[in-house]
Design a protein around this nucleic acid. Structure first.
Lengths: 202, 202
DNA sequence: CACGTTCTGCATCGATCGGTACAAAAATGG
DNA sequence: CCATTTTTGTACCGATCGATGCAGAACGTG
């Protein structure tokens, strides 16, 4: 009953939580989990540490929510790519999406899922493990899509979906590192086009 | 004349600087520049912070020297690979060397040149820039080797050395991320074999 | 109005960060 | 022996780390 969303009791928030999370995402993206201090984060978010802790829990939870936002925003190209009609078009769309996302003229270079926490100290271990799981999920979804492509007759019977998924993810992670090093979009796209010419790698 | 190396005046060192640097390298490799604290480093090196600073300068210099040691040790496969007689054998050796180095049963997974400092805060910016230069060097050496392969008639006239070098480095960086995620050596090698079957990417 | 609830600003917490001051220890040269 | 040079252990530096205590402000409700 009722009108659905009711205004909660108590003092209302003085900031937009979505907007603040977006700012935090950008900081994590650029500096990595360990490199992003609470001072960096709260300054970019425009709120105090108190407000951040009240709204998001702690730094680790904030990172987790930023990663979710990343999956549904900059990294949403993956879900769309998996709906392409053929395995080759799926692979092409994934790689192109990765290049576009990691080399946006505005925003950080690289991929949050890679550079967010690749090698860390003890304090970043949870974030690192989270990203390992995140990357593993992407791999599994791509592999499953390629399995379906064999059932569809789109990929030949002899094709290896796991190997092809490993190849596509390896390309995207490599692209993420190149982008973080400042390599430009056009050069990466030419390389990616060539890399998929041998599809499905015989 | 003298006997060459003369024992210097003053109290002699109580530790083996080479051995200590090797230990520091392993810590940086596993935790990254920012994730490796002085306490982590000196404990692994078996010396006090005072001795570390006297022998190596500071944390940044220690990282620089660890990277040099990495280039001449775990990453030495690159120089050997560049001496292979054909471009395909060069590419094959580079990728195989990267897989072996990033998935050693003993020692950290992944590549120091990638995960040592990919995205950092202000304190890690110098290390990050150093690794960008390091990776850029590797790319240039590979590209130059492929240029020579065209002169040798080993690669066809129409081949693009820069594109091929970008492809090989992208594969190795992607492999480094996969290895850091715990993907096993055999799976990566199968993928790499397939990835080079289309060489020179037409 | 008072009340309960939630959020905010300020001050601060103990722990850890990278880095050093200082004097004793251990070597060489006279 | 003494003087010089270099390394070592101890103790410590100010800054920053992630995180919190607390009082008051800002809302809906009765």
């Amino acid at each position: 009953m009722g009108t659905g969303q009711r205004r909660p009791t108590g003092r209302p928030r003085g900031f937009d939580a979505d907007e603040a999370l977006e700012r935090a995402l950008l900081v994590f993206w650029e500096r990595g989990y360990e490199g992003a201090s609470l001072a960096n984060l709260t300054e970019a978010m425009g709120i105090s540490t108190t407000s951040m802790y009240a709204a998001f829990g702690n730094k680790e939870e904030l990172f987790r929510k930023a990663l979710e936002r990343y999956s549904e925003g900059p990294s949403a190209y993956l879900a769309r790519a998996l709906e392409e009609p053929t395995a080759l078009r799926v692979a092409t769309a994934i790689v192109a999406g990765a290049i576009r996302t990691t080399t946006r003229p505005t925003g950080p270079n690289g991929c949050l899922g890679v550079q967010g926490a690749l090698a860390t100290g003890d304090s970043g271990r949870a974030a690192r493990d989270l990203l390992i799981t995140w990357r593993g999920n992407d791999y599994s979804r791509i592999r499953d899509r390629f399995r379906r492509a064999i059932d569809d007759g789109d990929l030949p019977e002899g094709a290896d979906p796991a190997l092809l998924a490993r190849y596509v993810t390896t390309l995207t992670y490599g692209i993420a590192v190149q982008a973080a090093s400042g390599v430009h979009r056009d050069e990466l796209q030419e390389m990616a086009d060539a890399a998929l010419r041998g599809w499905p790698l015989r």
